[in-house]
Design a protein around this nucleic acid. Sequence first.
DNA 1: CGGATCCAGTTGTAGGATGATATGTATCAC
DNA 2: GTGATACATATCATCCTACAACTGGATCCG
Lengths: 244, 244
Amino acid sequence: MKQRLAAIGTVETLPHRVAAFLSREIESGELNPGARLPTEQELSEKFGVSRNVVREAIAQLRADGMIEARQGIGAFVLAPEQRAAIRIDREALKDTHNMERLFELRCILEAEAAALAATRREKEHLDSIKAALDRMGGEERWEEGSIDADLLFHREIARATGNSYIHTFISFVCEQIRQSIHYARLTNPLHDLVEINVGEHVRIYDALVAGDPDAAEAAMRAHIVGAANRVGVKLPLQKTTGAR
Amino acid sequence: MKQRLAAIGTVETLPHRVAAFLSREIESGELNPGARLPTEQELSEKFGVSRNVVREAIAQLRADGMIEARQGIGAFVLAPEQRAAIRIDREALKDTHNMERLFELRCILEAEAAALAATRREKEHLDSIKAALDRMGGEERWEEGSIDADLLFHREIARATGNSYIHTFISFVCEQIRQSIHYARLTNPLHDLVEINVGEHVRIYDALVAGDPDAAEAAMRAHIVGAANRVGVKLPLQKTTGAR
DNA sequence: CGGATCCAGTTGTAGGATGATATGTATCAC
DNA sequence: GTGATACATATCATCCTACAACTGGATCCG
C-alpha cells in the first residue's frame, strides 16, 4: 500500500516537468504536426536546466510517438494518429466531466467484454472471478482492500475474454478511474468510504456461469451505470435496456 | 509520406534498445513487480553504454509507469495495473493472431461508438464524415490516399460521439491496425492493393444521418467483420445479428 | 556549370563531477 | 545497555564538457 501511495504522490522530476510542458504545447496546437522543436540547447536555456534533462524529456515524448528526432536536423512534432501510446493526463481526471467520459468508455468496453466472456470463459476464469467476488464481500473494512477486489473482479472478467488487448485496455481504464476517485476523495472527504454493490456483481457472475452473453452484458451495463452514480457521475447512456 | 516512412523505419537508438530489453525482461516475468533493477552503473556496464543512455531508457519506462525510481534507493518494477500508458509492441502486430484480437477490440469500440454517434452527431460531424466518404470513393488509386480517407472516416465518427477518450482510443487502435496491415503487405506482396468496400461505409453514413443507433451499430459491426475478412482475418464474433 | 569538399549546426553518446536522499553503522552520552 | 546523534555509503538527480555521427548548405575547384 505504501508502494501505491508512493506511486501516486510521485515527485515531479525535472524531465517530467519539461515533457509535460512540451506535451501541453503540442496538444494545445501551439506546435503543429510537422513543426520543428527548438534545439536541445535552446530548450535547456529556456527552462534553465541541463541539456541532459531536456534529452530525457524528449526521450519520453519520442517513446510516445509524439515527436520524432533526427540526428543532424532536429526534432519534429508528429501527427496525433502516429502516437505509439495512449496516455491520460492525470490533471484532466480531476474534471468531473472527463470522469463521465471515462465511465462511458468503460461501459462500452466492459459490457461487450462481459458478453464475450460469457461465451468463452473456462473453469479457471470462473474460479478467479469467484475468488475476487468473495474477497469483495468478505472484507470487513470497505477501504482499499475491497476496492482492489472490485477492480480485480473486472480485470478477471476481461481476462476471460481470451483477448489480451481487451484485458489491457480495460485494466488501464479501470486504473484511471480508480485514481480519479482517489483524487476526488482527497478534495471531497465526505465520501470517506466507497460503497460497493455486491448484488450487482453477483448478477454479473451468475450470468457468466450460465454462459448467457446478453444477460452478462445487461448486468455489467447496469452495474457500471450504478457505480458511476455512486461516485456522483451521471451516465447519459441510451442503452440501459440491455435486452435485445 | 516520406514522413510516415521515416517514422516507421526509425533507427534504433541506444536508449530505445536498452528500454526494449528491460521492457521485455519485465513483460516476460524475469523481473517481477516489486523487484529492484540493477543500478544505473551496473546497467551501463552490462550493456556497454554510458550512464546517460541508461537514464534515458529508464526515463521512458518510468513515463509508462512500468518502473518507479526513488532517489537514494534504486528503481523498482511496478505492477501492470499501475501503468500510466498503453503501448502496443510493434513486433507483436506481425502475428496474425494478434491482428485478430485487435480487430475484435476495434469492433467492440467502433460498433458502440457508431450507436452513440447516431444519437449525438451534429451537422458539422456529418459534413466531415461525408467529406471523408467522398474522398474514399473518389480516389482513383486505391493506394495510401483512400486508406487515409478510410481511417479518417472512422475517426470522424468517433469524434462525433463527443467523447474525446473514445476518439483517442479508436484512433489508436485503427492506427495499430493500419501498421500491422502495412507489415503484412511487406511480407506478403500479393495483397498489393487494399480493397475497400464503399457500400458498407455508405450504409453506416446513412444510419448516422437517420439518427438510428441500432442500424448504425449493426452497419458498423458488419463493416468491420467484412474489413477483417478482406485482410485475411476471420472474426469469431457471436454478435453478427446486430439488430436488437 | 557540375561535382567534390569543407564547414557550421544538431542530435547521439561518453564520462566525470556534484547535489540530494535514503539506509545502515559507528560513536557517544547517559 | 539504550537511545540519540553523527558519519559513511549507496543510489538516483542534475550538471558540465567533450567528441562522434549525421545533415544541409556554402565554398572551392575543375
